[in-house]
Amino acid sequence: MHAGLDIETARALLAWQLELGADAPVGDAPVDRYALEAGPVSGSATAAPPAPPTTAEADPVAEAHAAARGAGDLAALAAAMAAYPHCDLRHGARNCVFADGQPGARVMIVGEAPGRDEDLQGRPFVGRAGRLLDRMLAAIGLSRSAEDIARAVYITNILPWRPPENRRPTAQECAMFVPFVERHIALADPEVLVLMGNTPLQALLGESGILRLRGQWREVLGRPALPMTHPAYLLRTPSAKRAAWEDLLALSARLDAPGP
């Protein structure tokens, strides 16, 4: 350490350099630039060739689009999501939570992100909110375990990795996984989408305000989509269950309506 430079000053200087973006060394050992020999006088020797251009930084969203397009079926998509390297949430999660229920079901539910129970079991909506969701679906004759495809549901989330302390996903995290979710919808091919909560509403529709927009049919990727409040919100706010029941009835009526 430089004479007269105490540890607190050194730490402050290091933090300042990190804030400026100097977060990687250029060599394995420090270099004393003042000890280097002077270079040749200009014109006395051939100039060194220019350094090759640096490789452009990876675009996580572009790579997500490429990986999603390359998935020919749901198994390949699940593998591509698990291998996708750009989301740091994967380092703190136990499982990549892909989906549950019946692929090919008429209804596909898109939630937010795994919680603790989902991360442990590797399945979406299995905690308290998931059990409430199962009861809600059963009230209109739907189930994730139904053998009859007409009464089955298929469930996924915007993110496959659990955010720490169940915090809300960031816009950047959602942007990285929207290409996978869009491919997921195309491969599962549901008749109707249910967007549960603000996160899928914003990620797939670019709108916010689930309490204002719930129950209002929208369109996502050419399919009817119904925004609904998340079951976790209903657990915190029981008075909102009446509105959720109205949305379930609207979903049931849509499914029971005669085709064109």
Rank of each mutant, 00 (worst) to 15 (best):
D6Y: 04
D6S: 10
I7F: 03
A10V: 07
R11A: 14
A12T: 11
L13W: 10
L14G: 12
L14Y: 11
W16F: 08
Q17I: 03
L18V: 05
L18W: 09
L20K: 08
G21S: 06
G21H: 05
G21W: 08
G21F: 14
A22D: 12
A22Q: 09
A22G: 15
A22M: 11
D23H: 10
D23E: 14
D23M: 08
A24S: 10
A24E: 15
A24G: 06
P25H: 05
P25I: 07
V26K: 09
V26R: 13
V26G: 11
G27S: 08
G27A: 10
G27V: 06
G27C: 13
A29S: 08
P30K: 08
V31K: 12
V31Y: 11
V31T: 13
V31M: 11
R33Q: 10
R33P: 01
R33H: 08
Y34C: 04
E37I: 07
E37K: 14
E37S: 13
A38S: 11
G39S: 15
G39A: 15
G39C: 14
G39V: 12
V41A: 13
V41D: 11
V41E: 09
S42V: 15
T46D: 13
T46V: 15
A47N: 08
A47K: 14
A47E: 13
A47G: 09
P49S: 12
P49W: 06
A51Q: 11
T54I: 09
T54A: 15
T55F: 06
T55W: 04
T55C: 05
E57K: 07
D59N: 13
D59H: 06
A62P: 00
A62F: 02
A64R: 01
H65M: 13
A66Q: 15
A67Q: 09
A71D: 05
G72F: 13
D73N: 13
D73K: 06
L74C: 10
L74R: 13
A76F: 07
A76K: 09
L77V: 03
L77N: 00
L77E: 00
A78F: 09
A79P: 01
M81H: 04
A82N: 08
A82F: 06
A83F: 15
A83E: 14
P85A: 15
P85G: 11
P85H: 14
C87K: 04
D88C: 03
H91M: 14
A93M: 11
R94F: 12
N95V: 05
C96T: 02
F98A: 00
D100L: 02
G101H: 01
P103E: 01
A105S: 07
A105L: 01
A105Q: 01
R106H: 09
R106T: 05
V107M: 02
V107K: 01
M108I: 04
V110C: 04
V110S: 01
V110R: 01
G111F: 00
G111M: 01
A113Y: 03
P114L: 01
G115S: 09
R116Q: 06
L120M: 09
V126F: 01
R128P: 04
G130F: 00
L133D: 00
L133V: 02
L133M: 10
R135C: 07
M136Q: 07
M136F: 02
L137P: 10
A139N: 14
A139M: 05
I140R: 03
G141H: 03
L142K: 01
L142R: 00
A146N: 04
E147N: 05
E147P: 02
E147V: 08
I149L: 11
I149T: 08
I149F: 05
I149D: 07
